[in-house]
């Protein structure tokens, strides 16, 4: 026979456990939304150009600074500034491809990787010289506001907004790739570069567009996380390995896969900090990464034989 007090305690305890679980699940889901966008950008570049872009984190960092300066100098809300950031970043990526990456597109993988590492070093250290190493904090009126649902689970307002925007952008991107001529050409290039070329697709232009898209997506991810994170020349490095993991998890080149992959990584991180320990969560993510590589190298959403 359970006494009344103990029973109430047990109910309360169960309630705490449930709140705990959902709090962890939802905050992981929302953080995962931003990871997803970074992963999708990486995946587009990977798919079309077959390049591991190690400068992806640094491109994200540039997005953060763009959002910061749009907010502090032009007084534009970070979410609104995306309208400015997306085209600027696209152009920047397009030019980077034309000037640098284009020249080594037929070189071995490792040279491509090292080139992107070099470009990343140039970007982050130029930022260090220009903006100093003082982290910038983008404080909006809603930076630390939250809504409470189900009487105990709090959700960050800026992360919720970011999540909605991520879904929107992913949707638009999906439509672009599946419905427009350029999108279909990009998709064809990612399926088979040589065949696409034979069919009259300008594959070198497609590469530049893909890198522009990847850059725009990375910068968007940076801008979206800026209000809830801090902005620093090396800030992108945290997200680089996550973006790789997401992109492999979803299947190289798969937009939807990377989207889902991002959310999964967000939730896994959150759950492992809650139920395991926060200092081991990255290890859990890497073990999942290796597991996917070994047992399903085409990724969760890739077709067999696409590797």
């Amino acid at each position: 026979m359970v006494s009344g007090g103990k029973f109430l305690q047990a109910v309360h305890f169960k309630g705490v456990i449930m709140t705990f679980f959902f709090q962890s699940l939802l905050s992981g889901l929302l953080t995962g939304g931003v990871y997803a966008l970074a992963g999708i950008g990486m995946s587009v570049v990977f798919g079309v150009m077959n390049i591991s872009n190690f400068a992806h984190g640094d491109l994200m960092m540039l997005g953060m600074y763009m959002a910061y300066f749009a907010f502090t100098l032009l007084h534009i809300d970070p979410y609104l500034s995306l309208l400015l950031i997306i085209p600027t970043a696209f152009l920047f990526g397009f030019l980077i491809e034309k000037v640098f990456i284009h020249r080594i597109i037929h070189h071995p993988h490792q040279n491509q990787i090292l080139l992107t590492i070099g470009l990343g070093l140039i970007m982050s250290n130029t930022a260090l010289l220009a903006f100093t190493s003082d982290p910038k904090i983008l404080t909006t009126s809603y930076s630390s506001s939250a809504v409470t649902i189900f009487g105990g689970i709090s959700l960050s307002v800026p992360l919720l907004l970011s999540f909605v925007i991520t879904c929107l952008i992913t949707g638009i991107l999906f439509l672009f790739l599946s419905k427009t001529t350029t999108g279909l050409a990009l998709w064809a290039t990612s399926q088979n570069r040589e065949a696409a070329q034979l069919m009259g697709i300008n594959v070198s232009k497609m590469s530049a567009i893909a890198f522009g898209l990847g850059t725009a997506l990375a910068a968007t991810a940076g801008a979206l996380i800026a209000p809830t994170y801090y902005i620093h020349p090396m800030a992108g490095h945290t997200f680089l390995l996550k973006a790789f993991t997401i992109c492999v998890l979803g299947g190289l080149g798969s937009v939807v896969g990377a989207g889902v992959g991002g959310v999964i990584i967000g939730v896994v991180e959150s759950m492992s900090s809650t139920y395991l320990s926060s200092d081991w969560k990255d290890v859990v993510v890497f073990i999942i990464f290796l597991g996917v590589l070994l047992f399903r190298p085409q990724g969760l959403f890739g077709k067999k034989g696409e590797q």
């Binding site: 640098f100 020249r103 080594i104 070189h107 040279n111 090292l114 080139l115 590492i117 070099g118 470009l119 990343g120 070093l121 140039i122 250290n125 130029t126 260090l128 010289l129």
Partner: peptide, 15 residues
Amino acid sequence: AHVLVYGIITVLCIL
């Protein structure tokens, strides 16, 4: 800026 110079050298060498 020494890491920056290192990055530039890397890019030039690869290219």
